[in-house]
Design a protein around this nucleic acid. Structure first.
Lengths: 153, 153
DNA sequence: CTCTCTATCGCCAGTGAATTGCGTTAGGCT
DNA sequence: AGCCTAACGCAATTCACTGGCGATAGAGAG
């Protein structure tokens, strides 16, 4: 029944990502949480708001409440499956926790979000530590600017 | 009457900071705006929320409405006298617009905010541009980490 | 100094994202 | 199959902030 059912008795890929891992973490795997995860992974490299996720989920199960969307996201974030990103607006955006750490540049004009590889920071963490004593966390960093398209004449 | 009244007929310092400059920009200098400015400059290097500013203002003029605090801050930000900073929480923080551009590191544990000189970014803007085509704006950047005190055993 | 014009204010209702309380439903382990 | 309780759905609530509107008070003109 599950769309992305893995090999019946295969035992290859070590850590299978996805909400199935919730069970081994003592949490229940519900249809609602599956759908939230589905919304987030339906299209790659997207950042969805809770509202957008709710819209997707409602296409498959109209009775799911907004409250459940929020609570499911909280669980997925807490369990490390989903990343909550503050993209400057008044709401949060979510994306599947990716393999490698990355950051975001948000266009002030059109709102477009682009990923930046962590390497780009260079010695920034070291410099920050030298200057302030702070040790940077693993949180993503959000930068703001203007994308190429919006700078056209 | 005004505490920090400048020289009666002096004409030294070129650009006098503070809300008095509002007048030359076609805006009115009201007691409420003075008080908001006072709250922000009462202690150096602080970042106050609208609520904290309201508390200060109310000590001197209890009848000032919260709406006015918000609108005054909007004006001061628009006129470039005050900087609105997004420190990650669900609310904005404000500080007098300083001379030089700077950024912030916020401690995830105690919430302490420390300034970082713009130089610290180094080639980051250039690298971001090379990698994404984006041109970074002049906005402050907020980083998160753990301050020295909170890392003590 | 007074008058007039209108920017600003204070009040209060309204937004919109997100949270909470509570009775009901349904995971999932035995 | 049954039980325990995590998780749900609903409705009401919180919280930071915004908008409408009549009243008030800056500040330039006279």
């Amino acid at each position: 029944m599950t769309p992305q059912a893995p090999h019946p008795h295969g035992h290859h890929h070590p850590p299978p990502p996805g909400p199935a891992s919730l069970r081994s973490r003592g949490r229940r795997l519900t249809r609602q949480r599956e759908l939230v995860w589905e919304a987030l992974t339906a299209t790659p490299d997207t950042h969805l708001s809770a509202e957008q996720i709710a819209a997707y989920v409602h296409q498959h199960a109209p009775s799911v409440s907004a409250t459940t969307i929020y609570r499911s996201l909280d669980v997925l974030v807490t369990e490390g499956l989903v990343l909550r990103t503050e993209l400057g607006a008044d709401r949060s955006f979510y994306e599947p926790a990716h393999e490698h750490r990355h950051h975001h540049v948000v266009c002030r004009d059109c709102g477009k979000v682009t990923h930046l590889h962590d390497d780009l920071l260079g010695e920034l963490p070291a410099r920050v530590n030298a200057a302030s004593g702070y040790v940077l966390g693993t949180e993503e960093i959000t930068l703001f600017g203007h994308c190429p398209a919006c700078r056209e004449p």
